[in-house]
Amino acid sequence: MKIIVDQDKCVASGQCVTAADTVFDQRDEDGIVVLLTDNPSPELAADVHQAAAVCPALAIVVED
């Protein structure tokens, strides 16, 4: 699993962190997404896909 985030598209909703808080975080100053790991362990796959699905800016792409 590989994760790509687009910080230019990100609208800082933080929905990804709510879905998978060991993989995604937000910058303190403006809330833009920060990727904590781009290749998380397989048991997090469902959470990561949920994060990509609920991102309102379509800023997360997951490649299995």
Partner: peptide, 10 residues
């Protein structure tokens, strides 16, 4: 204008 902190208050 305080996105991350707002989410933490959720």
């Amino acid at each position: 204008n305080m996105p991350k902190q707002t989410r933490l208050h959720r």
